[in-house]
Amino acid sequence: MTMENRKLYGLLAEFESPEELLSAIHRVREEGYRRIEVYTPYPMEEVTEALQLPSSPIPWFILAGAIGGIVFGFGMQFIATTIMLRWNIGGRPTDSWPAYIPITFEMMVLFASFAGLIGLFALDGLPQPYHPVFNVPEFVEHGSTDHYFLAVEGRDLKFDRRDTRQFLLGLGAYHVSEVGV
């Protein structure tokens, strides 16, 4: 890796169709590049598979939130009615748990939803005020409309400004841009 590579975030190749993008991803990975990021204007499971990304841990966040909500919801009602405001009404049981289920359920959904949102923000790095790819005008114009982008990052061990660029152009990229940091 040469000094000048460090000033670059990487190279951004633009593709017009999902088929070209997918074959390019396979070729790039076969070539040994690992620091790659793909941008598609809608979610594509094929790309997730091609990049061999591990499955998302979001369900664990949601599960943790759901359990937390159940414990909070049920615990609050149980403690309130049996300890904090114990009220004997004609000898009826104070720990009437079936009546606590609706609020427990609502708290489960509420906590699980927030946990999902927090997990999403944490894993996706949101909110993110700045990212180098937005320096490329083509990305801004087409990245969220119709084209597919493949970024090879400058910190990839195989990255070379000229060779990688030639390689990407050889894969049928419509356009390859250098991305400033």
Binding site: E37, V38, Y39, T40, P41, Y42, P43, M44, V47, T48, L51, L53, S56, I58, P59, I62, V109, A112, S113, G116, L117, G119, L120, F121, L123, D124, G125, L126, P127, Q128, P129, Y130, H131, V133, F134, G143, S144
Partner: peptide, 23 residues
Amino acid sequence: LGWRNSTRQWLHYTRTYWLLAAL
């Protein structure tokens, strides 16, 4: 929020959206 349509973002995004729907 700085969303940029990257595959890693979509991966967690679709999972979250799906589970929120399930909730």
